Simulated scan of single mutants.
Amino acid sequence: MNTVSTIDVGALGKVGVLFGGRSAERDISLMSGAGVLAALRSRGVDAHPFDTGLRSLAELAGEGYDRVFIALHGRFGEDGSLQGALEQMGIAYTGSGVMASAIAMDKIATKMMWLQKGLPTPTYAEIEAGAELAPVLAQLGLPLIVKPPHEGSTIGITKVEQADAFQAAVDLAARFDDVVLAEQFITGREFTVAILGAGSGARALPICEIVAPQGNYDYQNKYFTDDVQYFCPAALDAALGAHMQRLALAAYRALGCEGWGRIDFMLREADQQPFLIEANTSPGMTGHSLVPMAARALGISYEDLCLEILAGARLKLQQGQGQ
């Protein structure tokens, strides 16, 4: 990817900033999109807003965009469906392609890919409607985490500390997904690693640590309070930090991600073992968001971060077919 100083803004053409959408994370996407739009315009980009929750793909095709910045989170924007439509329309887009987006959006598929590559992630179980929960408790123990595998921003997630609370947690997650993910709870510190680029050229940004009130990094604390503390760069032993960055890059590449993204970790308190939790292929770009925070730690402004991500927009499938 070109550095910001060598990016020809005029060559980027007419740019659409895709935001809003129809997922449970719509409100966050509206904030991300507003920030990205203002940032790109401040750098002289011919950028225009496009809310995919209010306007159709036919309208998108008719706008004449040369490329788009995807500032959508969750379903219908981060899950590969929109990426496939953009490939069909021939509009270059930011972030990962169809397959990587779809896999990363599915937390169960993500864990299967990581485990196949020998990467550390907490033990888990899939729970289908009507399944017996006792075997899952026996397998995972308590506490455990229950979550819908296709949602983000901690939507539908419950930490289960007592067996009699397990069913209610499953029922909550099942409101969002047909299959529920139950996962061994890792007691320790929470971190995230932002990544820019693709393939061998991808680079990990400084690690950020997240310290939430009572360890509760939920939707409200993520976006609407100032109660969460962030430390970036995180206070980590240099060797451990480098190991976590290597793991993040390996996790990112295992899914086929590109452009930009974020890999979330838990560091187990007992033995300082890092565990991969999930991947985000279209992370938040709000005032509380972690990728801009990591970029700032390297002296990269929010505006230049947005410009660098936009400059990397491309069609993945056509290039892969040599067209």
Rank of each mutant, 00 (worst) to 15 (best):
F166N: 07
A270R: 13
T225H: 07
R175P: 06
R262W: 01
R67Q: 09
E308N: 06
R175Q: 13
R67D: 04
L12G: 07
G299N: 12
L40P: 05
I309N: 01
A239W: 00
I207D: 01
I103T: 10
G284F: 06
L60G: 13
S282F: 11
M285E: 03
E161V: 14
L247G: 12
L82H: 11
P283F: 07
R314Q: 15
H73M: 12
L60C: 04
D304H: 14
L247P: 03
L30G: 10
T110S: 15
L310H: 13
G284L: 06
R253E: 14
A58Y: 01
L30E: 05
E161K: 13
G130A: 03
A85V: 06
P206A: 11
E190P: 11
I263H: 03
C306I: 08
S301Q: 03
A71Q: 00
L133T: 05
G322P: 09
Q245K: 15
L290A: 10
G90A: 12
G84N: 12
E87A: 09
K159Y: 01
R26H: 13
M99V: 14
K316M: 08
L236A: 03
G21F: 08
A24P: 10
P135W: 08
C257I: 09
M293Q: 13
A311S: 14
R253D: 15
L172D: 05
T121M: 01
N280I: 10
I91V: 13
Q116V: 00
A165Y: 05
I195C: 01
R189D: 03
I210V: 11
V98N: 09
R314T: 14
G141D: 00
F69M: 03
G130K: 02
A194D: 07
K107Q: 00
L249C: 09
V136Y: 00
A270N: 01
A238S: 14
Q83A: 04
L37P: 04
R296G: 06
R55D: 11
G299Q: 07
E78R: 10
A169F: 04
G16R: 10
G44T: 10
I28R: 05
A182L: 06
A24S: 13
L40V: 13
L305C: 02
P283H: 07
I103Q: 07
D218I: 03
V98Q: 01
Y219L: 05
L240E: 04
D227H: 11
L144V: 04
